[in-house]
Each structure stands twice: as structure tokens, then as C-alpha cells.
Amino acid sequence: MRLTIPEQEIMKPGHLACQGCGATMAMRYGLKVFGRNTVLTIPACCWAVIDGPFPYTAVNVPLFHTAFETAAIMASGIKAGFDALGKTSTNVVAWAGDGGTFDIGMAAISGAAERNDDITYIVYDNEAYMNTGIQRSSATPHGAWTTTTPVKHYKRGPKKNMVEIIAAHRVPYTTTASIGYPEDFIKKLTKAKETRGFKLIHVLAPCPTGWKAEPKYTVKLAKLAVQTNIFPIYEVEDGIKYTQNIKVKQRKPITEYFKYQGRFKHLKDDEIAFIQKKIDEDYEILLKKLS
């Protein structure tokens, strides 16, 4: 197989992430594609810490830290500033967690998507508020333990479908990705970089700390999420053209994914069966949308 991952390393060593942090791998890939002519804005989330304390920085491109709910508009504002100054070629990337995206940042993202602002919004999804100590978000999957959904009241209800919400704005490009499939992720980053208008990349980034998993399983989990269909990999162009980028011939049972994670270990057989049924149903719905 021909390797397509760019050699350039923009990110420097010396960041503050936990061992095996998926979010950090995601950034490394992201910067490889976006390169030095890029400005990042990061709201409150693990990445606000990972980059390092003042006066240090690991990302090696200009970075504007911003308030939790403002990543999208901050990117739009920076982009508008650059446009006003004639620096139209600089890539402006909002880099946020699932909480800052699915929950508190929803209005600002919807605003930027509706205006079709020329920014790339990358949400690294670790399925909870990790920075504040593993509280549930609307990206937390059904069945998961978090500190605000203790095992007796584990998270119930489906994960919010961000790609569908953004695709409904009919933006040029919306996609899922997984750090377990870097080549696919790189392709999507490249496509986002080359597309004008609003782009959202929703990348699954396992978090060993919050998922109660061993750091060595980060990539394995990022693959299993795809292979079990709990996190299918597909993209939507202009809100209507659906393409599945990673086809799963025979999906694995969800227990294959759950067994490496403490956050699901309380689930009983009937609860797992229910989750499996939902995954299969959701997947059928997705298949019907494929162009």
C-alpha cells in the first residue's frame, strides 16, 4: 500500500497530554495537512491544556485560545480579520472537543455553517467532558459511564448526530473520521483544506483516561468503533451527497469494542443487546442515504 501521510511534522514534542491520547494524535495529523500557513483557535477543552502553559506552545502555528462556546465564531472572526487585511490564503481552523461542539458551542457552529464561513471546524470526539473530569456530553454514547452518569444512571439515549445536523445546513463538506484510519483522515483534512466555505470534520479520538482503557488500545479502539459500526465513516457533500469512505464487510459485535473499556463494563446482556440493535438500525438508516 502506498503511504499518503505527509512527512512534515509541525507539532513539537513536549505537550501535556496523557499517554495514548487520541486527541493529540488527531492534532498531529491535522497539522501535517494544514501546514504552517494555518491559524488555530481552541476553546476550553483538553487541548487548551495539552498545548502547554504560557509562554510555551506545542502546535507551532499561531494559536488563539478562546472561550468554551466560541470556537466557530472565533475562527470566523479571525478569517474576517485576515480577509480584511488581504491575507486570504491562510487556513483558519477551529479545533474543539465534543462538549464545546455538540453542547455549548452549538449556536455559534450553526451560525458559522449557515453563513458558510470559510473555516474548517475539527471536533475531536472523546465522548465526554474530559478536561473537567469525564462528565457526560451529548456525544456520550448510550450505556456509557461518566462521572455525571454513574453506573446506576448510565447515559441513556442516543449520541447527538453532529454530521447530520451540520449537513442539514447544506455546507460544502461534512465528514466523520477516526484516528484509527489515518489515511482516510488525511484525505479528509486535505479535502477540507482545499474546499471553500464551511467544513466540519468529526474525528473520533479515544481517550484512555476517560474511557477507562489502557493507553495501548487507543488506535485499536478507534478502529473497532468503525468495525463495529458504532462510528461509521462517511462524508456528506453539499448536505446531500453521502459517501461511505470505509466499508465494513462484516461488522464485529459491539462487545468487541466494549470489552477494552471500563466505561461500559456495568452493562448487562439485555442492555448490550439493545445497544447492538440500535447500532444495526442506525447503520441501515445510513446505508439508505448513501448516494
Binding site: V39, T41, F64, T66, A67, E69, T70, I73, M74, A75, S76, G77, I78, K79, A80, G81, F82, D83, A84, L85, K87, A107, A108, S110, G111, E114, R115, D117
Partner: peptide, 25 residues
């Protein structure tokens, strides 16, 4: 000659100004 961001809230109005100003505008 200005970029005008028709934002969806005042929280975003100030945030957009912050981003633009940080960019040097």
C-alpha cells in the same frame, strides 16, 4: 471597506470582533 459578520448572537458578535482584532484588524 469592511467585512461584516452577521452573527447569530451578541456573544458571537464580541467573539467575532476578538478574533478579527487578534488577527490585526
Amino acid at each position: 471597506d469592511a467585512e461584516f459578520i452577521k452573527v447569530e448572537s451578541e456573544h458571537s458578535a464580541m467573539s467575532g470582533c476578538i478574533g478579527a482584532s487578534a488577527a490585526g484588524a
